[in-house]
Every structure is written in C-alpha cells, then in structure tokens.
Write a protein that binds this DNA or RNA. Structure first.
Lengths: 194, 194
DNA sequence: CCGTTCAGATACTATCGGTATCTGAGTATG
DNA sequence: CATACTCAGATACCGATAGTATCTGAACGG
C-alpha cells in the first residue's frame, strides 16, 4: 500500500473516531490526544493530517452533513404527495433531531467562529449551501403540489433550518421537547406564506 | 460599608464584566483570570463569589434573560392590536436577535451541559420558564384577538423559542440572514395552527 | 543501493480551570 | 478598647490540553 493511501486511511479513521467522540462529549470536552490514541495513533498523526482541532471538526461536520442530507432527501423522495412527504419528514425529524446531538456540536463549534475567521467563513459557506438545498427541496415540493406561487422558498428554508437548529438544541438538553412542532410548523409554512 | 455589602458589590461587578466578555468572545475563549483582572480583582475573587466558571456564566445568563424579557414584554405591551404587537415584536427581533450574540453564548454554554449535571438541570429549568412565559404571552395575545381556540399556545411557544434560537445562532455567524422571517412565521403561527 | 522525503511519534511550551494556602481588614466578644 | 476570630480576596501551585519543535524510520525517486 502506498504512502498516500495509508495517509488517506489514517485521515478517514481519525475523522470516524473524532465524529463519535465529538458527538458524544462535545467539541471542548474532546481532546485531540484521546481521539488520536483511540484511533490507534499519536497526536502527531492528527497534526500531520489537519491544521488543528478546528479543521478536524470541520471535516467531521462535513461527514455529518452528508449523512443528514441523505436522510432528508430519502424522506422526501419516499412519498409523492405533499402530506405524505411532510409526514415522512416529520418521522425523520423525530429520529434525527436532537438525539444524536449533532445540532449541539454544530452550534458549539459555531461559537468558535468568533475567534477564528477560518471557521467563520467555512461555516457560513456550508450553512448557505444547506439553506439553498432546502430551498430547492421546498421549491420542488410546492411546485409539484401546485402552490409554488404562495410560498417564498428562501424564507421557508431559513425558517425551517432555524427551527431545526433551535429545536435540536433545545431537545439535546431537554428530552421532553415535542418535536411534532417541527412538522406542524412546516405544514403551516408550506401551505402558503401570507 | 459592611463586608457583605462589599462582597455583593464585587459579585455584581464580576457579573457585569463577565457579561461583556462572554458576549464579546464566547464562553470558552473568555478566561476567568482576564475577567477578574479587568474587574479589578484577582481570580480568587471569582472563586469566593462563584463555585466556578459555570456558575458565573449562569449568573450572566440570568442577567441577560432579565434584559431580554424586559424587551419582549415592552414590545408586546406597546401596541394593543395583534398586528401592531407582532410588528413591535418584529422590530425587537431585528435589533435583539443575533447581534449582541446572546443566543450564541446560550447555545455554546448549553454544550457544557453534556458534561455537567448542574448546568443541565439549571438550563432546562430556565428554558421551561422562558417557554412558559412565551406561552402565557401567546395566550394573552390570542385571547384578546379572539382566536385563542385555534392556537396551541404551548406548541407556538416552543416553535417561537426554537425559531429565535436558530435564527439568532445563524445570524451571529452570517449577518445577511433575513430576520423578517421571524415576524412572518410568527404571524402565520398566531393566525391559527391547523 | 542510497539519499531524500514525509507520516507519524516524542518531547516540550503556554494557557487555563481549579485547589490549597495565606493574609489582612472587618467583626464579634470580654 | 483590646484581643481573637472570620472570611473576602490574593498568591502559589497543579493537571489537562492545544499547539510547536524536533526526531525517526519506512517508503519513494534516481
């Protein structure tokens, strides 16, 4: 196996372990040393694959986003009519919102951005991509339901993303939060803006 | 001046300085040493007034919540009809959401809760109080507007709080986020749930 | 082969939250 | 009023951790 291959393998393994630990304990509470050791390496391996903790976490977030987007798209393509899609999405939200605590990691890491221009720009870039993807999904769904002209897809996307972040944050602290709110609000939003 | 008075003064001064610094730089990036020195004391003063960084931050959050609640209540009592109130609230949101970055501090601190049962319980307690207060406000407003039976105040409160947290978080990173979304969504929610 | 490169290990530094100990001004008591 | 006590706050220290500097040995090119 070539040296480049081995390094790529190391990198992936580090991201994998870091993802578990960041999600379980949060960003600040996870030390690079522990990540490295648990992945079977030393801290040096981390610093020769990433510029530091921030870049490692960014890679972890990318990996999480990928999973999450797959889940959302699957929920939306399962059914074909508006209500069925919203229901499928609600089911996804019930499972995926707040429990694996990815929103908590997301917002904790977001706080770093105040100190780091790198994190700030990278995070904003990703948020805009995600918002655009949601807007596209909304556009598609409302067009097929024949109500595209009554919904502002960009505003709806911002509202839905915010709602998801907020609910996920609350729920990662307080498990009694009712996630049905998400689907209900979504239904109201998609049924026409004003 | 008695010793107890001096200590109370010291405590208030520490909270005041900590509030500025936590809001400006975030929880993790603010060191107790710097807070103490900037307040004109040594780190010992912090530890003789608070059990540690967590309790200090909790006191800061309480101070912030007080300000915030005052703002919301003022917005709601200024006008008397539904649309006027929503407009006043929207104006408050434009000013108070995401810019002084209190939501960012709130959620960054929330991440600590995974490691600290104290933070977890205290934070959940406060979130429930806030949600109850919002629900009460919703109940009042919808009753006066004669639409109380079409709105679930508790669900609306959860949605509004989540939306506020989410929008504030996004906006503290990305200033181009449109906060009008908040008022628009609120209007939709208050005009009837299903 | 053999010198170079570089992924990853090892050793070290700086910073920060927290603890232990100290000190001197304020307090209670005779 | 004098003396002993208390405790807010200062000082000195410890352990953990992100980041840096240096080293090493195995994979490459020539």
């Amino acid at each position: 196996m070539s040296r480049a291959d081995r390094q790529a393998q190391t990198r992936e393994r580090l991201i994998e372990v870091a993802r578990e630990m960041f999600l379980a304990d949060g960003y600040a509470a996870t030390s690079l040393d522990k990540v490295a050791v648990r992945a079977g390496f030393s801290k040096g391996a981390v610093y020769s694959n990433f510029s530091g903790k921030e870049e490692l976490c960014m890679a972890v977030l990318d990996s999480i986003h990928e999973t999450q987007i797959q889940g959302v798209v699957a929920a939306f393509t399962l059914d074909t009519d508006l209500d069925g899609r919203i229901e499928a999405f609600a089911a996804w939200a019930r499972e995926g919102l707040g429990r694996p605590r990815w929103t908590a990691l997301e917002v904790e890491f977001g706080a770093i951005a105040r100190q780091s221009p790198y994190v700030a720009t990278e995070l904003v870039k990703r948020h805009r991509e995600i918002r655009a993807a949601i807007a596209q999904l909304v556009r598609q769904v409302t067009t097929e339901a024949g109500i595209a002209d009554t919904v502002d897809a960009d505003q709806a996307a911002t509202a839905l993303l915010s709602l998801g972040i907020g609910l996920g944050t609350l729920r990662s602290l307080d498990h009694t939060i009712d996630v049905a709110v998400f689907a209900d609000t979504m239904r109201v939003l998609l049924r026409g803006w004003r």
